[in-house]
Amino acid sequence: MGWFTRKRKDAEQPETKEEVFIQCPACKAHIYKAEWEKNLEVCSHCNHHERMTCWERIDLLIDRGTFREINRRVTASDPLKFADAKGTYGEKIKETRQKTGLNESVVTGRGRINGIRVVLAVMDFRFFGGSLASGTGEKIYQAAAYALKHRQPFIIVCASGGARMQEGIVSLMQMPKTCAAIARLQQARIPYFSIMTDPTTGGVSASYAMVGDIHIAEPKALIGFAGRRVIEETIKQKLPDDFQTAEYLMEHGFVDLIVPRKEMKDTLHKLLKYCVAA
């Protein structure tokens, strides 16, 4: 899959320019498309790490040809028969599945990282903002169970705005559910790494994202519990720009490592060697 098959909607330059250049959504610099892609969608000016699809992420981290998806058929459910002003959640699921080709906000599978076998769950922000819902929780629970059964390290790449409102209380219950999955790994001394990418917030940050043996973040990723606007309204103050960034989280002791995209795979490999018996 090509690194840049999507067209940016927020880019406001003439068509001809758009074909050659990408505008960095953070610093607005124009960057050669070829360079942007070679840089794995990282801005060479400001180090902004653009959000990746789950497939791009799997390409980045897993040895070519070794990824095997598991539980692909677990799809989003509609336990509340939810509807809002814009229509039913059921319809929206259908649309989103068609648009993204995904069945849920996470893809799970097994594969190798420089030869080491791992079980991997990768969230995808395109699917309802990567939100945690019943299907997401079930896939993560099953992937962890697979890791437990085969005694292989478990890695989750988080990219989520939090719990999915349309599944109400059931989505909230995926927090204890996924933490139970991690607790079982912990009891069996199976390594679990959490990789926090932009954004990792709400119910995901307050569950599996924050209970890893190792916490890795991508540079500048937004990580936190409550949303910036809610906090600003609560404390009636403006928050500094760096609030809830990966760097802020590291400074306050919640992240082990901040790893640029280019070094992520090799870093994982180095860490895994300490946690997996040869």
Binding site: M175, C179, S205, A206, S207, Y208, A209, M210, V211, I223, G224, F225, A226, G227, V230, I231, T234, I235, Q237, L239, F243, Q244, H252, G253, F254
Partner: peptide
């Protein structure tokens, strides 16, 4: 849970998780 800056700073998400 309290959505305050101090709570975030001290790891509201981590504490609940």
């Amino acid at each position: 849970a309290y959505p305050g800056a101090d709570a975030e700073e001290r790891g509201q998400a981590e504490a609940i998780a």
